[in-house]
Design a protein around this nucleic acid. Structure first.
Lengths: 337, 337
DNA sequence: ATTGGCACTCTGGACCCCGGAGTGCCAGGG
DNA sequence: CCCTGGCACTCCGGGGTCCAGAGTGCCAAT
């Protein structure tokens, strides 16, 4: 059914279409690639490929363009990942090095990816779940309001202001801070829930209400929320692509954190590079785009994901190479920092 | 030279062109607005307005469209600011209320502005300069690296990791923390520089090198840096506008913090609404856009700026109304929080 | 100063036409 | 059985032409 030549034809079609953005016909195909058969033969192959749904012609008697299914086959069996040269790797390293805090790393990563691939880059902040608590700080803002600052051993700082049910003096805040730090310091975030459950006994009854408010904020916003913020960059690259109509929808989707979550989140948890093509995409409005993503993390397991988004007509091997390389190096940077 | 009717004509041209996006001719003009003169008269007026550079015709025998200069006159003398109804105001309030931390306020503000005006919204984080220090926290990350966390009395948290010249034990960090808090707590950021200058005397000579590193980071990243991050939203609205060609440049400019700084920064420091039209704009690539901006702040003086960016063909009165109203309420929210 | 009339100009859409590229099919040959 | 050259067919897209409509500037008259 799908002999080697037909696969070669499909590969050639994808490659040509990606680079020229024009439907590709049998004649051009035999010219550019050295398939040593006649155009007529290619036409027969193309007819088969079309029957199987890998390519379509926009109109009768035009060349063929790949379908989502065609790209899928290309990515799965035909393309491989374009490895980066050592020069490119070094460029990545130096670009990412010299970033001090996490924000800086994430920002640089997003820029880097966007530049390398000339697509839109999306980078998710590393998950907190595997971090431990280094320090908890409570700062009174008003009578009944305090700022809760949590510092993790991965150097991450999370803040949240807490509305207390009742007023709290300097001393009661100090007491609460001491208790929290005594019991939570050094704990993994995954353990926090159970530790907090035991805490109320250690608190003066008079202060339990306020303490409870603080506890619930810790749990709710720092532990249970494992979805993490996603940063987008390189949106300008969308304009160069031909999107024309859908552009508005794409831009809109890119501004919705929730949508981005779904986009990256449902894209498998594996650390390896995954590709989601066109309609495979769960997000409405992004169904004519493809996502190339990978997990990254400081240790073995992936902490978060990053990737690039572009038209389905995309240079997958290069994009995959870039994503893989960047994911790897971000992991290293994070581990070292 | 510019009698009342000519001004009325200019106003009408601007209004019509903004709403229809088509060059406006004398006939249509007298129909839609009730100028009780004949089209021929209007034509004479238009000829004068064109000589003065307020309007142009795209080609011979087409209608007129306003020039930047025309919009300028319109904004300065003809339009006024469209006030918001109380219903709209309440909508703004409820939308902004319920935002706890600063990030949340800024994000909501950006969304709100974008939605109200259907343009791109830009919001600058409030400057730290007028805040005081509530608390300084130092957290050891590695032997020679600590995380510096600064909490202001406006509930803002700034973090920065510091590479120390030499190793620092738990106790020396603790000491440094104590000293810093003793001398800096409650100080305004504006005073910090002078306070820090005196500090080295209070530090053990052995630790001076490390302390100096921390000081310089505080000064450099928290005090001297009064430029503040700018957040962009509603970029999707650009796609609806007709930009066509320049869209890429605009999107690119919007991703450059530095460019945004210049855009907002040079737009005057007054708290009132200011408008920058087309080529008046210092930023290359944004010269076919207009910016409507205003300062906002919790107190009297403006802490930062926010605004909307759109095509010069923009509904200025509405945009100005929205910007003014939002700036006002953000100020209130910030003051209350 | 305003107006109606008039001749002029230009754009944009409709229409048509044709070349080029591409196809599918078929019959013949390895 | 697969490949190939040939052939008739289809369709898009660019270029040319044409016309109506909208708009203008000017001028003489009020």
């Amino acid at each position: 059914m799908l002999d080697d030549r037909k696969l070669a034809v499909l590969r050639a079609i994808v490659e040509d279409y990606v680079s020229t953005n024009e439907p590709v016909g049998s004649k051009n195909l035999v010219d550019r690639h050295n398939l040593d058969v006649s155009p007529a033969t290619i036409r027969n192959d193309m007819a088969v490929l079309e029957d199987l749904g890998f390519i379509v012609q926009p109109h009768t008697s035009a060349g063929r363009i790949p379908t989502d299914k065609g790209y899928r086959l290309f990515v799965d069996r035909l393309s491989g990942i374009k490895p980066f040269t050592s020069a490119e790797r070094r460029a990545i390293e130096t670009f990412l090095a010299g970033a001090y805090d996490l924000d800086e790393v994430v920002m640089r990563t997003v820029r880097l990816l966007a530049q390398l691939t000339r697509q839109v880059a999306v980078v998710q902040y590393p998950s907190l779940t595997r971090s431990g608590i280094r320090h908890l700080e409570l700062v009174p803002l008003t009578d009944s309001r305090i700022l809760l600052v949590l510092i993790t051993d991965t150097g991450r700082v999370e803040q949240r202001s807490v509305e207390l049910p009742g007023p709290a003096g300097e001393d009661s805040v100090a007491h609460l801070r001491a208790v929290l730090n005594a019991y939570l310091d050094g704990r993994k975030l995954t353990e926090v829930a159970s530790v907090i459950a035991e805490l109320p006994d250690r608190i003066e009854p008079a202060e339990r209400a306020n303490a409870a408010a603080v506890f619930s904020v810790i749990l709710e916003s720092l532990v249970e929320r494992h979805e993490e913020r996603i940063v987008v960059g390189g949106a300008a690259n969308l304009a160069s692509a031909d999107f024309a109509k859908g552009l508005h929808d794409v831009l809109e989707a890119l501004e919705e954190q929730v949508v981005l979550m779904r986009l990256l989140g449902e894209s498998g948890d594996e650390a390896s590079v995954t590709v989601r093509i066109g309609a495979e995409n769960p997000v409405e409005g992004l169904q004519s785009t493809s996502l190339v993503a990978a997990g990254y993390g400081s240790g073995e397991q992936a902490l978060a994901r990053l990737g690039v988004l572009g038209p389905t007509r995309m240079d997958y091997p290069t994009a995959m190479g870039a994503v893989r390389a960047v994911a790897r190096y971000v992991g290293q940077i994070l581990a070292g920092a």
